[in-house]
Design a protein around this nucleic acid. Sequence first.
DNA 1: GTAACTGCAAAATATTTGCATCCTT
DNA 2: AAGGATGCAAATATTTTGCAGTTAC
Lengths: 143, 143
Amino acid sequence: MQTKSITIRLNDILHRKELSSTESRRKILSLFFNSNDALTHGDIEKEVGHKYDRVTIYRTLQTFEEKGIIHAIPTADNAILYALCKDCTEGHHHDDHVHFICTACEKTICLDDVVSPKIELPKGYVADNVQVVINGVCKECQS
Amino acid sequence: MQTKSITIRLNDILHRKELSSTESRRKILSLFFNSNDALTHGDIEKEVGHKYDRVTIYRTLQTFEEKGIIHAIPTADNAILYALCKDCTEGHHHDDHVHFICTACEKTICLDDVVSPKIELPKGYVADNVQVVINGVCKECQS
DNA sequence: GTAACTGCAAAATATTTGCATCCTT
DNA sequence: AAGGATGCAAATATTTTGCAGTTAC
């Protein structure tokens, strides 16, 4: 049975991060797995309706980010976007891939295979990580 | 007299963008000229105290951004940072330089001379603009 | 059983809107 | 004088905090 094995997988992820496997966490985590694009707090709230408290969603996203399950994507407007991490560990994110924001469908996508470039900085500056966000038109929206 | 010539310069910028030159706009614009790093709404509010209404600051920042006087810098936390534009026109920003966020002094700096790299995207994706935000330690904060 | 997690209430903070008044041109 | 800009009040939205009750392990 498909559903059961997914639940096991979610349990597994949570336990590896030393988080207890609760219904709300499994549900929110599954939303990320079922979505190709990044999600905001608002997106999640819309999806789950009043099933879970808004505060729980805030706390869950924060916990997931701290534990390296999801990462925040910088955007110029005020919404914090989150997406699944590939290889992040607690307290240390390795999301050195490019994020693509489509101006047509408004979706934000992790281009996991496109790594951030090395950038030559002026003398005295030391880079820790490089975040790249590209605006444009995505594959799906090309006419 | 120095002060007067600065005022003239601010007037000039505002008039070129077809904005009337008001005290609050000149003040806020001058803050950007006097700051090396990017500013948030909150920074500006702190600087001007209760001299101008909070709403005026919101509206001024929005107007400045629309007119291409300042640009918003994407960050992963919830604060929108603004910095002066170099060559932006109304409705079209050309801020293809790198932004540097120092993890020590927390300042965000426009590296105007470091341009965003060309990035090879997967088939079907078309880039409009490339935003690069680098976290690290800035020149001033190197021990 | 116990520590961790959630829901509820409420506080704190941030942002937007409408409208009357004032200022720039 | 006229249109645009500001200030104030208030509505709305967002995020945080404390605490009591519930759940996972």
